[in-house]
Design a protein around this nucleic acid. Structure first.
Lengths: 126, 126
DNA sequence: TCTATAATTAACCTATTAGCTAAAAGGTTA
DNA sequence: TAACCTTTTAGCTAATAGGTTAATTATAGA
Protein backbone atom coordinates (compact mmCIF):
# COMPACT_ATOMS: atom_id res chain seq x y z
CA UNK A 1 0.00 0.00 0.00
CA UNK A 2 2.92 2.30 0.64
CA UNK A 3 6.16 1.50 -1.15
CA UNK A 4 9.54 3.16 -0.62
CA UNK A 5 9.51 4.10 -4.32
CA UNK A 6 6.35 6.13 -3.95
CA UNK A 7 7.41 7.65 -0.68
CA UNK A 8 10.79 8.89 -1.90
CA UNK A 9 9.30 10.04 -5.17
CA UNK A 10 6.72 12.04 -3.19
CA UNK A 11 9.44 13.56 -1.01
CA UNK A 12 11.48 14.69 -4.00
CA UNK A 13 9.33 17.80 -4.45
CA UNK A 14 9.92 20.81 -2.23
CA UNK A 15 6.27 21.76 -2.53
CA UNK A 16 5.23 18.35 -1.23
CA UNK A 17 7.71 18.46 1.64
CA UNK A 18 6.30 21.86 2.55
CA UNK A 19 2.79 20.45 2.53
CA UNK A 20 3.86 17.73 4.95
CA UNK A 21 5.39 20.36 7.20
CA UNK A 22 2.13 22.32 7.20
CA UNK A 23 0.18 19.21 8.11
CA UNK A 24 2.49 18.16 10.89
CA UNK A 25 0.62 19.89 13.68
CA UNK A 26 -2.98 19.69 12.46
CA UNK A 27 -5.10 18.68 9.47
CA UNK A 28 -5.95 21.40 6.96
CA UNK A 29 -8.50 21.90 4.19
CA UNK A 30 -7.22 21.79 0.64
CA UNK A 31 -7.91 25.50 0.24
CA UNK A 32 -5.97 26.40 3.36
CA UNK A 33 -3.00 24.50 1.98
CA UNK A 34 -3.31 26.07 -1.46
CA UNK A 35 -3.37 29.62 -0.14
CA UNK A 36 0.09 29.13 1.37
CA UNK A 37 1.49 28.63 -2.14
CA UNK A 38 1.84 30.78 -5.20
CA UNK A 39 0.72 28.10 -7.62
CA UNK A 40 -2.78 27.24 -8.75
CA UNK A 41 -5.20 25.09 -6.82
CA UNK A 42 -5.22 22.30 -9.40
CA UNK A 43 -1.45 22.06 -9.06
CA UNK A 44 -1.77 21.67 -5.29
CA UNK A 45 -4.50 19.12 -5.82
CA UNK A 46 -2.10 17.00 -7.83
CA UNK A 47 0.58 17.24 -5.17
CA UNK A 48 -1.95 16.16 -2.56
CA UNK A 49 -2.94 13.19 -4.72
CA UNK A 50 0.69 12.11 -4.99
CA UNK A 51 1.20 12.38 -1.24
CA UNK A 52 -1.97 10.40 -0.68
CA UNK A 53 -0.90 7.79 -3.21
CA UNK A 54 2.32 7.35 -1.27
CA UNK A 55 0.34 6.80 1.90
CA UNK A 56 1.84 9.87 3.52
CA UNK A 57 -1.44 11.73 4.09
CA UNK A 58 -5.11 10.89 4.51
CA UNK A 59 -8.12 12.65 3.06
CA UNK A 60 -11.64 13.13 4.32
CA UNK A 61 -14.50 14.98 2.73
CA UNK A 62 -16.26 17.41 5.04
CA UNK A 63 -19.21 18.94 3.28
CA UNK A 64 -17.88 20.97 0.41
CA UNK A 65 -14.39 20.95 1.90
CA UNK A 66 -11.78 18.24 1.87
CA UNK A 67 -9.63 17.79 4.92
CA UNK A 68 -6.07 16.46 4.67
CA UNK A 69 -3.87 15.23 7.49
CA UNK A 70 -0.67 13.33 8.07
CA UNK A 71 -0.61 9.57 8.04
CA UNK A 72 1.70 9.58 11.00
CA UNK A 73 3.24 6.12 10.80
CA UNK A 74 4.24 6.10 7.16
CA UNK A 75 6.90 8.78 6.90
CA UNK A 76 8.80 7.92 10.04
CA UNK A 77 8.59 4.24 9.22
CA UNK A 78 10.09 4.55 5.77
CA UNK A 79 12.77 7.05 6.75
CA UNK A 80 13.77 4.91 9.67
CA UNK A 81 14.00 1.76 7.58
CA UNK A 82 16.08 3.57 5.01
CA UNK A 83 18.49 5.02 7.54
CA UNK A 84 18.92 1.58 9.07
CA UNK A 85 19.89 0.18 5.70
CA UNK A 86 22.02 2.95 4.34
CA UNK A 87 23.51 5.09 7.08
CA UNK A 88 26.75 3.77 8.54
CA UNK A 89 26.31 3.72 12.32
CA UNK A 90 28.62 5.88 14.34
CA UNK A 91 31.52 3.92 15.66
CA UNK A 92 31.78 5.79 18.92
CA UNK A 93 30.27 3.27 21.28
CA UNK A 94 32.01 0.27 19.77
CA UNK A 95 35.35 2.06 19.95
CA UNK A 96 34.80 2.93 23.57
CA UNK A 97 34.18 -0.68 24.41
CA UNK A 98 37.25 -1.87 22.52
CA UNK A 99 39.42 0.79 24.10
CA UNK A 100 38.29 -0.32 27.53
CA UNK A 101 39.34 -3.85 26.68
CA UNK A 102 42.73 -2.56 25.51
CA UNK A 103 42.03 -3.95 22.05
CA UNK A 104 43.31 -1.43 19.51
CA UNK A 105 43.49 -3.66 16.43
CA UNK A 106 39.83 -4.15 15.35
CA UNK A 107 40.35 -6.42 12.37
CA UNK A 108 36.63 -7.17 12.11
CA UNK A 109 34.83 -4.78 9.78
CA UNK A 110 32.20 -2.75 11.53
CA UNK A 111 29.06 -4.13 9.95
CA UNK A 112 30.12 -7.60 8.99
CA UNK A 113 27.14 -9.06 10.79
CA UNK A 114 24.50 -6.90 9.12
CA UNK A 115 21.60 -8.68 7.47
CA UNK A 116 21.89 -9.13 3.72
CA UNK A 117 18.16 -8.91 3.09
CA UNK A 118 16.87 -5.56 1.97
CA UNK A 119 13.47 -4.42 3.14
CA UNK A 120 13.31 -1.13 1.28
CA UNK A 121 15.28 -1.77 -1.88
CA UNK A 122 13.98 -4.09 -4.62
CA UNK A 123 16.29 -6.51 -6.36
CA UNK A 124 16.27 -5.66 -10.05
CA UNK A 125 15.30 -2.02 -9.95
CA UNK A 126 16.47 0.75 -12.23
CA UNK B 1 27.22 22.75 -0.66
CA UNK B 2 24.52 20.19 0.09
CA UNK B 3 20.93 21.39 -0.05
CA UNK B 4 17.84 19.44 0.98
CA UNK B 5 16.51 19.92 -2.56
CA UNK B 6 19.45 18.10 -4.08
CA UNK B 7 19.51 15.41 -1.43
CA UNK B 8 15.84 14.50 -1.76
CA UNK B 9 16.00 14.70 -5.52
CA UNK B 10 18.96 12.31 -5.42
CA UNK B 11 17.09 9.92 -3.15
CA UNK B 12 14.05 9.81 -5.41
CA UNK B 13 15.68 7.22 -7.68
CA UNK B 14 15.71 3.57 -6.65
CA UNK B 15 18.96 3.04 -8.53
CA UNK B 16 20.62 5.82 -6.54
CA UNK B 17 19.30 4.51 -3.24
CA UNK B 18 20.71 1.12 -4.18
CA UNK B 19 24.09 2.67 -4.91
CA UNK B 20 24.12 4.25 -1.47
CA UNK B 21 23.30 0.88 0.06
CA UNK B 22 26.22 -0.72 -1.80
CA UNK B 23 28.56 1.99 -0.57
CA UNK B 24 27.48 1.78 3.03
CA UNK B 25 30.06 -0.71 4.15
CA UNK B 26 33.02 0.16 1.91
CA UNK B 27 34.02 2.31 -1.06
CA UNK B 28 33.74 0.77 -4.51
CA UNK B 29 35.12 1.49 -7.97
CA UNK B 30 32.68 2.81 -10.55
CA UNK B 31 32.93 -0.44 -12.48
CA UNK B 32 32.14 -2.56 -9.44
CA UNK B 33 29.02 -0.50 -8.91
CA UNK B 34 27.99 -0.65 -12.56
CA UNK B 35 28.27 -4.43 -12.75
CA UNK B 36 25.60 -4.76 -10.05
CA UNK B 37 23.09 -3.12 -12.40
CA UNK B 38 21.51 -4.02 -15.70
CA UNK B 39 21.92 -0.57 -17.18
CA UNK B 40 24.85 0.88 -19.09
CA UNK B 41 27.94 2.37 -17.49
CA UNK B 42 27.22 5.89 -18.69
CA UNK B 43 23.84 5.70 -16.98
CA UNK B 44 25.51 4.70 -13.72
CA UNK B 45 28.05 7.45 -14.22
CA UNK B 46 25.22 9.98 -14.33
CA UNK B 47 23.65 8.61 -11.17
CA UNK B 48 27.00 8.86 -9.42
CA UNK B 49 27.37 12.46 -10.55
CA UNK B 50 23.97 13.30 -9.11
CA UNK B 51 24.79 11.65 -5.79
CA UNK B 52 28.08 13.51 -5.70
CA UNK B 53 26.37 16.79 -6.58
CA UNK B 54 24.07 16.26 -3.62
CA UNK B 55 27.08 15.75 -1.35
CA UNK B 56 26.05 12.19 -0.56
CA UNK B 57 29.19 10.50 -1.89
CA UNK B 58 32.84 11.38 -2.53
CA UNK B 59 35.01 10.45 -5.46
CA UNK B 60 38.72 9.77 -5.77
CA UNK B 61 40.72 8.78 -8.79
CA UNK B 62 43.01 5.79 -8.30
CA UNK B 63 45.03 5.17 -11.42
CA UNK B 64 42.65 4.28 -14.17
CA UNK B 65 39.89 3.57 -11.68
CA UNK B 66 37.64 5.93 -9.80
CA UNK B 67 36.72 5.10 -6.25
CA UNK B 68 33.40 6.20 -4.74
CA UNK B 69 32.39 6.18 -1.10
CA UNK B 70 29.72 7.51 1.22
CA UNK B 71 29.94 11.01 2.58
CA UNK B 72 28.82 9.77 5.95
CA UNK B 73 27.54 12.95 7.56
CA UNK B 74 25.33 14.23 4.79
CA UNK B 75 22.57 11.67 4.53
CA UNK B 76 21.96 11.19 8.21
CA UNK B 77 22.12 14.94 8.77
CA UNK B 78 19.49 15.78 6.20
CA UNK B 79 17.16 12.93 7.07
CA UNK B 80 17.37 13.80 10.71
CA UNK B 81 16.65 17.47 10.12
CA UNK B 82 13.69 16.56 7.97
CA UNK B 83 12.23 14.14 10.48
CA UNK B 84 12.57 16.76 13.19
CA UNK B 85 10.59 19.21 11.12
CA UNK B 86 7.94 16.98 9.70
CA UNK B 87 7.38 13.90 11.81
CA UNK B 88 4.96 14.39 14.69
CA UNK B 89 6.74 13.15 17.82
CA UNK B 90 5.16 10.27 19.65
CA UNK B 91 3.11 11.46 22.53
CA UNK B 92 3.95 8.57 24.80
CA UNK B 93 6.31 10.27 27.20
CA UNK B 94 4.27 13.43 27.51
CA UNK B 95 1.15 11.40 28.23
CA UNK B 96 2.92 9.43 30.92
CA UNK B 97 3.94 12.61 32.66
CA UNK B 98 0.46 14.07 32.47
CA UNK B 99 -1.13 10.87 33.69
CA UNK B 100 1.16 10.86 36.66
CA UNK B 101 0.00 14.36 37.49
CA UNK B 102 -3.63 13.25 37.15
CA UNK B 103 -4.13 15.78 34.35
CA UNK B 104 -6.36 14.14 31.73
CA UNK B 105 -7.54 17.21 29.83
CA UNK B 106 -4.50 18.28 27.76
CA UNK B 107 -6.03 21.33 26.04
CA UNK B 108 -2.65 22.54 24.84
CA UNK B 109 -1.83 21.23 21.39
CA UNK B 110 1.21 19.02 21.39
CA UNK B 111 3.66 21.11 19.41
CA UNK B 112 2.43 24.61 20.07
CA UNK B 113 5.87 25.68 21.15
CA UNK B 114 7.69 24.38 18.11
CA UNK B 115 10.00 26.80 16.34
CA UNK B 116 8.51 28.48 13.28
CA UNK B 117 11.78 28.78 11.43
CA UNK B 118 12.46 26.11 8.85
CA UNK B 119 15.98 24.90 8.31
CA UNK B 120 15.31 22.48 5.48
CA UNK B 121 12.40 24.05 3.63
CA UNK B 122 12.80 27.25 1.62
CA UNK B 123 10.20 30.03 1.78
CA UNK B 124 8.85 30.56 -1.69
CA UNK B 125 9.53 27.23 -3.30
CA UNK B 126 7.40 25.42 -5.84
C1' DT C 1 54.55 5.13 -28.98
C1' DC C 2 50.95 1.93 -29.54
C1' DT C 3 47.31 -0.64 -27.43
C1' DA C 4 44.06 -1.84 -23.92
C1' DT C 5 41.03 -0.65 -20.09
C1' DA C 6 38.16 2.54 -17.05
C1' DA C 7 35.24 6.16 -16.85
C1' DT C 8 33.03 10.24 -18.45
C1' DT C 9 31.01 13.37 -21.89
C1' DA C 10 28.26 14.33 -26.04
C1' DA C 11 24.35 13.85 -28.74
C1' DC C 12 20.16 12.05 -29.01
C1' DC C 13 15.51 9.87 -27.92
C1' DT C 14 11.37 8.88 -25.11
C1' DA C 15 8.51 9.12 -21.17
C1' DT C 16 7.27 11.63 -17.29
C1' DT C 17 6.55 15.66 -14.43
C1' DA C 18 4.84 19.96 -13.24
C1' DG C 19 2.68 23.73 -14.32
C1' DC C 20 -1.34 26.29 -16.65
C1' DT C 21 -6.56 27.27 -17.96
C1' DA C 22 -11.13 25.69 -18.59
C1' DA C 23 -14.59 22.57 -17.44
C1' DA C 24 -16.82 19.30 -14.45
C1' DA C 25 -18.04 17.18 -10.09
C1' DG C 26 -19.61 17.44 -5.45
C1' DG C 27 -21.90 19.96 -1.88
C1' DT C 28 -24.47 23.91 0.49
C1' DT C 29 -27.97 27.33 0.85
C1' DA C 30 -31.75 30.33 -0.74
C1' DT D 1 -33.91 24.62 -9.21
C1' DA D 2 -30.57 28.24 -9.24
C1' DA D 3 -26.61 30.36 -7.58
C1' DC D 4 -22.57 29.77 -5.43
C1' DC D 5 -18.51 27.65 -3.34
C1' DT D 6 -14.61 24.12 -3.03
C1' DT D 7 -12.02 20.77 -5.16
C1' DT D 8 -10.77 17.68 -8.80
C1' DT D 9 -10.35 16.23 -13.69
C1' DA D 10 -9.13 17.00 -18.61
C1' DG D 11 -6.33 18.61 -21.99
C1' DC D 12 -2.48 21.06 -23.20
C1' DT D 13 2.63 22.67 -23.19
C1' DA D 14 7.36 23.12 -21.71
C1' DA D 15 10.94 21.32 -19.22
C1' DT D 16 13.31 17.52 -17.10
C1' DA D 17 14.82 12.74 -16.12
C1' DG D 18 16.67 8.68 -17.43
C1' DG D 19 18.13 5.77 -20.70
C1' DT D 20 20.82 4.57 -25.19
C1' DT D 21 25.24 4.45 -28.38
C1' DA D 22 29.39 6.69 -30.01
C1' DA D 23 33.23 9.51 -29.06
C1' DT D 24 36.60 11.30 -25.74
C1' DT D 25 39.65 11.59 -21.78
C1' DA D 26 42.79 9.52 -18.53
C1' DT D 27 45.81 6.01 -17.12
C1' DA D 28 48.64 1.62 -17.41
C1' DG D 29 51.74 -1.34 -19.54
C1' DA D 30 54.35 -3.67 -23.46
Amino acid sequence: MSSPEKVFEALSSTARRRILAYLRDRPLHAGAIAERFEMSKPAISKHLAILEGAGLIWRKREGQFVLYGMEEETLAGHLWAFMQEVCPPSRTLRREVQDELGNEDSSTPDHAERSKVSTTLPKGAS
